[in-house]
Design a protein around this nucleic acid. Structure first.
Lengths: 338, 338
DNA sequence: CCGCTAGTTTGCAACGTTGCAAGACGCTGC
DNA sequence: GCAGCGTCTTGCAACGTTGCAAACTAGCGG
C-alpha cells in the first residue's frame, strides 16, 4: 500500500495536482470552495507531503543537525532538549550525531551531516578549534555552540567562560579559601573551553596575590564523574590538600564530592567545591552544588536565531555572541558568612 | 555554488552518470580502471550523494525517528546515546522528537514522524497505550521501547517491570523494613509502566503478608526530582512515616534523598530508598542509590534489531521482547547484614 | 458584443537518484 | 569469419514535489 501523494488527492478532489500543492503551500491563492474540497480530500486520504521530494525540489528539507560530543551528558542532554523544542517552533526537525569528542569523528561528521541533507548544523566541538571548523565550512551553515571567540568566519554562541571561571574562583576566595585547586584541564585535546576556564582561574588567583601551584591544576582525560573522583583523591593525598576545588564541569564536581564522602571529608567545611554547567543533578545533590549556570535557554535561542540568520544570508561575516551566566551559590560552596 | 552531483562526476570522469552511481552503490560490477577513475573524480569534486533524491527514489532514506517524552531526563538521554551509537553502526541517522508525555502530542508526533521521511520509529510512550499505538500504526514500522506487553500488533521491547519492582521491594523486606512506601503512580495518565511497577510492589508486600496502605502509595504528577521531594516530605509527615521508599524512577528517589537531607533524616538508617532506571547520577549520589538497572545496552540493541527485522518484513506479528535487569545494591538501601 | 483584466487553475519541466533492460565491446569456439 | 557469450556500460523512466508561465473563466467597461 503506497503512501498517498498529491496525485491521489488531486484525483479525489477533482482538481489538478498543482492546485492541491497550492492548497498545501499557498492556501490564500486558492478559491474558497476549491480549497475546502481539497482539504477534505487531504483529510480523507490522510495525505502528508513527502519530505524527500520537497527537499529534492526546494533544496531544503526542514532539518538541522545537532552535533555534540555525547548526548548522555546531562549538559548536552539539556541543551538538546531545548534545541529540539525551539527548533520545532521554527518548523525544523533535529537530527542528532555524537562525536565522542574525537577529532577525526568531529571532522567526519561535520562533513557527513552536510551530506545528510540538513539545512544547517549546530556544532559543539571538543577537539576541533573554531578556525578548523571555519576552514572546513562548506555547504550548510554552521553555528558553534559553547566555543569561545577566536578568528574565523563561523558563528559562535557561548558564555564568557573565562569571566565565569574567574567569578567562581573569586567566590571561593571571598569565603576565605586560599588553596584552591582546578580540575578539568585537557592538555591532550585542543579544548579551547577548558583553556578559557583555566585562564579565568589563574587570573582570579593572581588578582588575589596568590601563586598558582602546578600541583593544584589537575588534568583529566575526560570530564565525567570518575575523573572527578580520582582527581579529588589525588588532591586529598597531597601533603597540603586544597581547601577548595573548582571543577570545570558539574560531573567532575559531583565525582569530587563523592570521593569526599568516601573519605569522610566534609563539604564544604573542609573543602568547598564549585562546578560548572548547572546540570539538573547538581541542584539535587547532597550537598547541593554551587556552580556556574549558563543561561541555557538564551544560549539555545540565540544559537538557533543565528543559524536562521545565516541560512537566510550565508554570506554574513562570522559573529561571536556572548550569552549571560550567573554563579548559583548552593551548599557545596556557600556564600561568605557575615 | 551548486553541490556536485552524479552528472558532474560523470563528466569529470568521462563516463555515464549511471556508472558513477554504480561505483557508489555496487562497486563490484564496475571494471577496476573505470572504478579508479570515477573514485578520483568523486574525491576531487568532493561528491556526496544527495540523500533526498536517494530517498525519493528508493523510498527509504536511512533515518529513524526516536520519539521520547523528554530527552533531558538522564534515562532517556542515556538511551538516546545508545540508540544513536547503535543506529550509526547500522547506517542510520537518528531524528529526535519530544512528546513531553502529552497524549495529543504523542499521537501527533507518531503521525508526524512518519511524514518526516523516517524509515522507522522507536517510540517511548507515556500516555499512549500499546493498543492505541498499534491502532494508529500505518506507514513506517514502530517499535515501542519500555512499554510492557499487552495486545496489539506492535513490537515492544522492555524489561519485566512488575518483576523488577517486586525484587526491589523484596530487597527492602529482606533488610527488615516493614513499612514500605511507593512513589510514582500516575493515575492521571494511562502509564502502563507505572501500573506494572505498582503491581510488583503490591505483590511483594502481599507475599510478605503485609497489608497495602493507601497512605503509602503516593501519586505524582511527573517523575522528576521535585515530585520526589514533595512526596518524601508528605511521607515523613505521616503519623507513622515509612522505613523504606520504593521510587518508580531514580529522579524521584534522588529528590526523596534530598528531602531527607533537608530534614536531617538519615538514609538508609532511618529510611531506605530504592530507585529505578540506574541513571548515571544515581551511581555517584551521596548516598549512592540502590536501584533497578535495566540492561540498557541490550534494550537498545534489541529494539534496533527488532526495528530492522520489521522493516525487512513488515507483515510480521507484533513481538514482545523482555530484556534482563538487575537490582544494583548501593548505599541508600544496602544488603541485609549478616 | 467584444476585448481586457483579475482571479483561478493548469501543464511542463526539473531537482538527483536508481531499477530495469538493452546496448556495446571484446573474446572464445566452431 | 561469425555466432554466441560474458563483461561492462549506458539510456530511459520514474520517485513526488514545486517554480514558472501559460491558459482558462468570469466579469467588466467600452
Amino acid at each position: 500500500m503506497r503512501r498517498t501523494n498529491l496525485k491521489d488527492v488531486a484525483a479525489r478532489a477533482g482538481v489538478s495536482i498543482r492546485t492541491v500543492s497550492n492548497v498545501v503551500n499557498t492556501p490564500e491563492i486558492v478559491a474558497e470552495p476549491t480549497r475546502q474540497r481539497v482539504l477534505e480530500a487531504i483529510e480523507e486520504l490522510g495525505y502528508r507531503p513527502n519530505v524527500a521530494a520537497r527537499q529534492l525540489r526546494q533544496g531544503r528539507g526542514g532539518a538541522i543537525g545537532l552535533v555534540v560530543p555525547e548526548i548522555d551528558s546531562p549538559y548536552f542532554a539539556e541543551l538538546a532538549a531545548l534545541v529540539v523544542r525551539e527548533a520545532e517552533a521554527l518548523g525544523w526537525t533535529v537530527l542528532i550525531e555524537q562525536t565522542d569528542g574525537d577529532a577525526a569523528r568531529e571532522r567526519q561528521l561535520l562533513d557527513g551531516a552536510r551530506g545528510q541533507g540538513v539545512d544547517g548544523v549546530i556544532f559543539s566541538p571538543w577537539a576541533m578549534t573554531a578556525e578548523e571548523v571555519s576552514r572546513s565550512a562548506m555547504a550548510p551553515p554552521v553555528v558553534m555552540l559553547g566555543e569561545q571567540p577566536g578568528m574565523g568566519s563561523v558563528d559562535r554562541v557561548a558564555i564568557d567562560n573565562r569571566g565565569a571561571a574567574r567569578e567562581a574562583v573569586e567566590h571561593l576566595l571571598a569565603t576565605g579559601r586560599t588553596r584552591i585547586a582546578a580540575v578539568g584541564l585537557q592538555p591532550h585535546l585542543s579544548n579551547e573551553t577548558a583553556e578559557q576556564r583555566l585562564g579565568g582561574y589563574r587570573a582570579a588567583l593572581e588578582a588575589a596575590g596568590l601563586a598558582t601551584d602546578p600541583e593544584l591544576e589537575v588534568p583529566v582525560e575526560r570530564l565525567h564523574h570518575p575523573e572527578g573522583m580520582t582527581a579529588m583523591a589525588r588532591l586529598l593525598d597531597l601533603a597540603t590538600p586544597p581547601d577548595a576545588v573548582f571543577c570545570f564541569t558539574d560531573q567532575l564536581a559531583l565525582g569530587a564530592i563523592r570521593t569526599c564522602a568516601d573519605r569522610g571529608v566534609r563539604v564544604p567545611e573542609e573543602v568547598a567545591i564549585v562546578g560548572f554547567d548547572d546540570i539538573e543533578p547538581a541542584r539535587y545533590a547532597v550537598p547541593a552544588l554551587t556552580t556556574v549556570a549558563p543561561d541555557k535557554h538564551r544560549l539555545v535561542e540565540l544559537t538557533l536565531a543565528t543559524l536562521q540568520a545565516r541560512m537566510a544570508e550565508p554570506s554574513l561575516a562570522g559573529r561571536d555572541l556572548v550569552v549571560p551566566h550567573r554563579l548559583v551559590v548552593r551548599e557545596s560552596a556557600p556564600a561568605p558568612t557575615g
